[in-house]
Design a protein around this nucleic acid. Structure first.
Lengths: 253, 253
DNA sequence: CTGATTATCGTCATGCAGACGACTATGATC
DNA sequence: GATCATAGTCGTCTGCATGACGATAATCAG
């Protein structure tokens, strides 16, 4: 591998973000409307170019804050639980018709946010249920849907699908489902996160036994709440555990 | 995100390979000796630049074949079981002192190969047990070891560590351990793969029960062999299963 | 033939997970 | 205020997978 500074082909490097949250019992992703060609007017994942002296993770965090106001960090800021990790890198030669772009996709898990947030450099942004963004050609579309204008630009449909699959599998064996929750949450709220991400119904009693019996997963914060109605529920915070052993089992079928 | 073709910073994109195999009861990685500065004479992971119109996975497969002769592909070529997947992307601004390089690392799992292979564009290559490549500064070194010349160049030590950890966790819940085996193998040979990758001893009887009882993991090929000594062992091929449910359990401690 | 080595089958106890009953504590409704 | 719906929490039972380990089978090296 002889080194010749002029011999390597030039690439542009971007970061794209799969920002997931749970809203109204549905797993939702952040999508921004493209103001530029190509794919003008279509929805896409938020993202942007990596600066010349910027780390990949820093670029992802910067884009996230620019487009959502969310800050990453363990105990920082208002939204404490935001989680960011690298997802995968997409570099098919023709994935961007303008030039050769390699995109390092990142996955963000965030608690439910009041509004899609404004003030980004995208014309508009929204939370969309992932099942509406992931409809493949040939799938059923509701009559009132936007047809293929709901399809994501570039290869962002694939990126989103990979991110969703990563999230689905990761909450099995890690405590990351708490990243979808507010700092204090109930067992029922955590269960609804699992149900939304996996798209299944879980037995409340077995779920309660499992999560409260896993050391380090949850720590009681002392208070209770009735915000879900019914009997007051104990409030918990995320414990120090990061891996769940044995894991949460995703029901078959 | 206004588009200006001249505004994006130029990057070089490379692929680096973590090629793992099991030799002599030890998990080994492929390392090549660098002939160029920086890190001249040091060991590094194989890899190279991505061509202008080349997909990332294709570049990884090309580099793999150039440096080892291995061909990726399900039923192709001589070595059938070779597995290649994207690992992660490393892009710290100062990871290469020459210029801004983003490296998309890939993980390769291969059966034991007779020789480190020659004919690559690297001066020399060898299989090294991962524990010798992953010694951190401050760890014990055997007196006869090459000291820090055994440390990998660039951030390849971190990349290798990430690849090893990926392999260790992936054989838990997938059938990928068979990628370390020849096309036909015995239960004992598969068990020795797990033992080498995890660095633990497994009970032969429970292991046998587990792998032969998991549908689709192994299919008998009909023959037997005594190449491991002792009683003849039944030969198997990898079945169609890709995920193991329930997974293989890695012993604690 | 004897022993070493490896493969394979079986048994038993433990523990977790799924299915589900029962009870508790709140707000909503009449 | 009584009743109902809702959600949370505690228990029980059963099946199954696993860990620990005994026992037997089939080869090779002396």
């Amino acid at each position: 591998m002889p080194y010749d500074p002029s011999a390597y082909p030039p690439f542009a490097v971007t970061v794209d973000l799969v920002v997931l949250t749970v809203r109204k019992h549905a797993l939702c992703a952040l999508a921004v409307r493209r103001g530029e060609s190509p794919f003008q007017g279509r929805w896409a994942l938020p993202g942007g170019f990596v600066a010349a002296s910027e780390d990949l993770g820093s670029a992802a965090a910067r884009e996230l804050e620019e487009e959502t106001g969310l800050r990453v960090g363990e105990s920082a800021g208002s939204a404490a639980g935001v989680h960011l990790e690298q997802l995968a890198t997409y570099g098919a030669p023709d994935r961007d018709p303008r030039m050769r772009v390699v995109s390092v996709a990142h996955l963000v898990l965030a608690p439910d946010l009041p509004a899609p947030v404004s003030g980004g450099d995208a014309q508009s942004a929204r939370w969309a249920p992932v099942h509406t963004l992931l409809l493949e050609a040939g799938d059923e579309l509701e009559p009132e849907s936007d047809r293929d204008s709901d399809q994501l630009a570039f290869d962002h449909g694939q990126i989103l699908a990979d991110g969703v699959e990563r999230a689905r599998s990761k909450i099995e064996y890690s405590a990351l489902a708490t990243a979808f929750c507010t700092p204090e949450f109930t067992v029922g709220e955590l269960r609804r996160v699992y149900e939304a991400v996996w798209g299944v119904a879980l037995d409340p009693r077995n779920f309660h036994r499992k999560v409260t019996g896993t050391p380090g997963f949850l720590v009681p914060s002392g208070g209770t709440t009735t915000r879900q109605g019914g009997r007051p529920a104990q409030l918990f915070r995320a414990g120090g555990a990061t891996v769940l052993n044995p894991p949460m089992l995703r029901p078959e079928i």
